[in-house]
Design a protein around this nucleic acid. Structure first.
Lengths: 119, 119
DNA sequence: ACCGTACTACGACGGTTATCGTACAAGCCG
DNA sequence: CGGCTTGTACGATAACCGTCGTAGTACGGT
């Protein structure tokens, strides 16, 4: 333990996020191709860019699995996560994604909305 | 052998395609999250909706693997495949996808274009 | 009939993934 | 301090996926 990276000061609990230029379209699509993760992203979008803690999502899986999905979303560049006390807050990287792939996130969210409305 | 399904007349070699209402967004995203398949779809789009045979794609994988990827694309509803002689022709289901998820395919193709231009 | 081209089917192999359970750590609050 | 809430780490497991090779089918041309 106690091994820390350069950018992580002593007491911090910062999480690694990919820089914009490291975000790959394939990774984003893979992250969003899982029903549970797509659901998370939709709830996050419905929150209007606000922050939601992991525990506010009522997912039909265990906590370990939830942690896993949030990590996949973060590592693919879809969401940003920061600790706030004991809670871990999540928000969509809407601006970053829109800068990289203009219109894509909106199209994806619209597609997901439409599918959930008609199916 | 010689067992044939109801909808497949004797000499035909029709391939099963999902109906529009069976196409799932998650499936489309999963299909497109593989670099090889994304590449296929981009080439197909570049062909302007025309038909391309499987062998016209110069992919760095074996033929078996190519067959596999085309099947995933067909079964997820992204492409339509028909036999024409010994060749199997492929085309994007652009209209179907646009009817289901308006603007999504364009946004995805634009995103892939942009990524390949900048990376 | 034969051959060549185009594609498929099947089995195998190695890697990844989604899921769980248990045990643990970090922060808040009484 | 001690407990509560929140989330993590790790291992296990079963399923899935991308890839290959070999053997085979379907069609068209000579």
């Amino acid at each position: 333990m106690a091994v820390m990276t350069i950018s992580a000061p002593a007491g911090s609990r910062d999480l690694p996020h990919p820089a914009c230029e490291e975000i790959r379209l394939e990774g984003v699509l893979h992250a969003l191709s899982d029903p549970m993760r797509l659901r998370i992203v939709r709830e996050l979008a419905a929150a209007g860019g606000g922050e939601l803690s992991c525990s506010q999502f009522e997912l039909p899986v265990t906590k370990s699995t939830t942690t896993h999905h949030f990590r996949v979303l973060r590592e693919s560049g879809v969401i940003r996560q920061i600790y706030r006390g004991t809670a871990k807050m999540n928000c969509l990287r809407g601006d970053d994604l829109d800068g990289l792939f203009p219109g894509l996130l909106d199209a994806l969210l619209a597609a997901a909305d439409r599918q959930s409305r008609l199916a």
